[in-house]
Amino acid sequence: MTMSLPTATHATVDTVRHEFDRVLDRLMAPAMALSMGLMDHMGVRAHPAFNIIENDDSLIIEAELPGVAAHNLDVTVTDGVLTVSGRRTTEPLDQSETTMLRHERRSMTFERSIRLPEAVHHEGMDAVLEDGVLTITLAKAHHACTRRIEVRN
């Protein structure tokens, strides 16, 4: 009757270990995603790095997204918050025919939102994905709205 006890104990230990791993994964995942950028593990949402450039007329936000097709990419600006999201699927492999000797490029979903450092004009937005580089150009609101007001005598 007590024969099943060792098995049960093993199962419990395994369950606890599994649960512990899961908690650890969950705690580590955001930090990993941030530090690894695009080099993220499948299933974890990655946060692409941005470069922000400005000139007199516009704010330019740039991200490296190699292998991402434009139709898998979404760019929105809402209430001064820019969000870039999408997914990348790396080449599907016929596993019976090929062997992955080295695997550093991951399939992933990614999303990142940033508050824009200044107001932008919603009419003057442009996003281009070229050679794996996303360039979002936003017209600065102060520039777009500047109007000359005649001073009367």
Binding site: I52, I53, I60, E62
Partner: peptide
């Protein structure tokens, strides 16, 4: 170096 060509770098993460 496409950054310099576009303007002043305000924040550089990569």
């Amino acid at each position: 170096d496409r950054l310099a060509a576009k303007g002043r770098v305000r924040r550089q993460e990569y």
